[in-house]
Simulated scan of single mutants.
Amino acid sequence: MAEIQLKNVSKRWGSFVGVDNFDLTIADREFLVLLGPSGCGKTTTMRMIAGLEDATGGDILIDGSRVNDLEPKDRDVAMVFQSYALYPNMNVYENIRFPLKVRRVDPGTHDEKVRRASAMVELDDFLHRKPAELSGGQRQRVALARAIVREPNVFLMDEPLSNLDAKLRVSTRAQIKNLSHELAVTTIYVTHDQIEAMTLADRVVVMKNGVVQQIGSPTEIYDRPANAFVASFIGNPAMNLVEGEVADGTFHAPNVSIPGLSAADGKVVLGFRAEDANVVQNGGQINAPIYTMELLGDATMVSVRIGGALVSVKADKTFRAEIDDPVSIEVHQGHCHLFDAETGARIGG
Rank of each mutant, 00 (worst) to 15 (best):
Y84N: 02
N209I: 06
L24Q: 14
A226P: 06
I49D: 02
K177P: 06
V279G: 04
D125Y: 06
G244V: 06
A117D: 11
S118E: 00
A264N: 13
T199G: 14
N153P: 00
Q140C: 08
F22C: 07
T44R: 04
A132L: 11
Q82M: 11
N255V: 11
V302Q: 02
A247D: 15
G271A: 10
V9K: 03
M1Q: 14
F31D: 06
V77N: 03
T292L: 14
E196M: 07
E342P: 05
Y84V: 02
Q138F: 10
R104Q: 15
M1P: 13
Q213V: 09
R12M: 12
A274E: 08
L168I: 14
E122D: 13
L134R: 00
Q213E: 15
P237W: 07
G297Q: 01
G266D: 07
A231G: 02
T300C: 14
G136D: 09
K314Q: 15
L164M: 07
G235E: 08
A27T: 05
T219W: 13
S312L: 12
V206H: 04
A299Y: 07
N89H: 15
G57H: 03
T250G: 06
F229V: 05
A2V: 05
N178W: 06
R141E: 01
D20C: 07
G137Y: 11
R47H: 05
A147T: 01
G308F: 10
S303F: 11
A184V: 09
S232N: 12
Y87L: 02
A277F: 10
A132G: 11
E322C: 11
G216T: 08
Y87K: 00
A263R: 02
V302Y: 03
H335R: 13
M198Q: 12
Q214T: 01
K73C: 11
D165P: 01
G64V: 08
L127V: 14
P254H: 13
E71K: 15
Q194Y: 01
L127W: 09
A50I: 08
Q214R: 00
D63C: 02
G307A: 09
G348A: 10
D59S: 10
V154G: 00
T318G: 09
A228N: 07
F272L: 13
V311P: 00
V170F: 13
T187L: 03
